[in-house]
Nucleic acid binder design. Structure first.
Lengths: 298, 298
DNA sequence: ACGTGACATAGTCCTAGAGATATCAGGTCA
DNA sequence: TGACCTGATATCTCTAGGACTATGTCACGT
């Protein structure tokens, strides 16, 4: 493809004149006077090397050469138009694919909230959502397999990534409804010392796991872990069945289960932090938009 | 389709840079220095409203918006390129459709000569060739159903049409080989006075028909027409079968038939004129080219 | 620390394109 | 024949685009 020979405005003028077949009307449609239009056409004809219109008495008509050029010119103009529109919509983050990783513990709380808001603002963005634990999320972000991570307790010594806190939530005690402690408004953590615990496997979320264990340690005991479960629903079911109790982020309340009680704990100052993560050198508008949506929401 | 927003050179620079992914090399390919290329890209990005390239360390890469725009820009440039080429080839008469009408009597002589030469020079022109008698040819030319006519004895009071003589040929006598006159080198027309004649129907070619009858009249007789035939081959066969003689344009000699003799006539000064005809206000390059080919050939 | 490669920025120049107004020329039709 | 429509010409102005050279900045490798 060599350098362009003809300016686009001339091709545009050409197509309009080809439609109108009348210099005056075509010029009006182009918003210019008639003489400049005559010039544009003449220039174009000079560059093509042949007349494109027959200006005989009885009006203006396309020549064979003009009929040959017209569809090409129309397609080219349409291509550019569509291409610019597409580039703008993608560039503005209105369209595209956004790959989001999320920690399992957010599946029922933060994730749907964020997605709902984002989809309402950017309905044409395709969302590719994958459940992943924290460190694989960061790995995937690093090598570009992921655009956004949604995780708990982000590390803070990583200038490579940006983090924005979405939620800081306290912990609650999860008890069988019939448990004696369930009659209290708030449960002192120390009182759970002798209870069997249901907990997530450490590998699934080391930060959260350690935070819960720490809570117990601060209350003066090491939890006896009777059962492990990955999903919060499963964990709820285990508690319901009386296999143990647990401490969990407060958003677990959204899982309503008969026979399971959620109670504040004392001390109640511990918080688990949920954040979105992104690669700092990723300036994709999709990411920026998601972050701004998150920002509004918080 | 509204007025063009971006100049083509910018799109061209964009596609080249997208291929090279290196400002220096792309500029070299474009035959310009690097700074102007940077400017072009910057201007384009401003008009699009979003960056098209990521200039991070580690080289230049297309952004999502750039990836969106690239194929459209390439297609548009290719369209224009192809469109211009097509228009030029059609405009130069290198390509297109040329509709030619011809009189039956030229089917074996002038027509193939003209067509052969023309096809060699303009192999991409599609030829639409139809046998037509003279006046329908002129009618068809008039209302644009035909581009070129090839006929005998064109009328001369028609400023509407142009005519160019292709051939002026004498008449010959067509005789059975065994006929006494066939032993002569030249046949006086007057000697044919008592012979039965084979002639074309007047409606098929009034000018030629009348010219032959006139030849006889000048020799002092009115031909007795024993048989009519439209095609020259048929006429030859009739002569061969001894049903009569005839006078015909000399190019009929090209039809070699055993048992048929062609002889000069005396007086030998009568000529029949073959001409190409075209509409004077038709400036099609196809027509012009055909005329110039005919001009060279004569 | 220093050179080098790669791209951006600044400042300047030139030209082609696009626009306007005023006027001319060739039809058509009343 | 003269008014009118249509397109072409002539002339002028202005601007944006495209080009250059020189210089700056930043990251990277020795």
């Amino acid at each position: 493809m060599s350098r362009p020979e003809v300016p686009l405005p001339q091709l545009h003028a050409f197509t309009v004149l080809a439609e109108e077949l009348h210099f005056g009307r075509a010029a009006a449609r182009l918003g210019i006077a008639q003489p400049p239009l005559s010039q544009q056409i003449r220039r174009l004809e000079e560059k093509v090397g042949h007349p494109l219109f027959d200006r005989g008495s009885g009006g203006v008509a396309l020549t064979a050469a003009g009929r040959e050029l017209l569809p090409a010119a129309q397609r080219a103009l349409a291509e550019i138009d569509a291409g610019l529109r597409a580039a703008r919509s993608v560039g503005g983050g209105e369209r595209g694919v956004l790959r989001i990783g999320f920690a399992a513990s957010l599946a029922l709380t933060v994730l749907p909230d964020v997605l709902r808001t984002y989809r309402r603002r950017f309905p044409d963005v395709e969302l590719d959502i994958r459940e992943m634990t924290s460190s694989p999320q960061l790995d995937a972000l690093r090598d570009g397999a992921l655009d956004i991570g949604l995780l708990r307790e982000p590390p803070h010594d990583t200038p490579e990534f940006g983090f924005r806190t979405v939620l800081r939530e306290p912990f609650v005690a999860v008890l069988p409804a019939g448990h004696p402690l369930a009659s209290r408004r708030a449960v002192p953590v120390a009182e759970l010392a002798d209870e069997p615990f249901v907990l997530l496997p450490r590998a699934v979320g080391p930060q959260l796991h350690d935070q819960i264990v720490d809570l117990c340690a601060q209350a003066g005991f090491t939890p006896r872990i009777a059962q492990r479960a990955v999903e919060w629903q499963t964990m709820g079911a285990l508690v319901q069945a009386g296999l143990g109790v647990t401490l969990a982020p407060a958003s677990i309340r959204r899982i309503h289960l008969d026979g399971v009680a959620y109670r504040r704990i004392t001390p109640g100052d511990a918080r688990t932090r949920v954040a979105v993560a992104w690669r700092r050198d990723d300036h994709s508008p999709l990411v920026a938009n998601l972050l701004s949506v998150v920002g509004e929401q918080v």
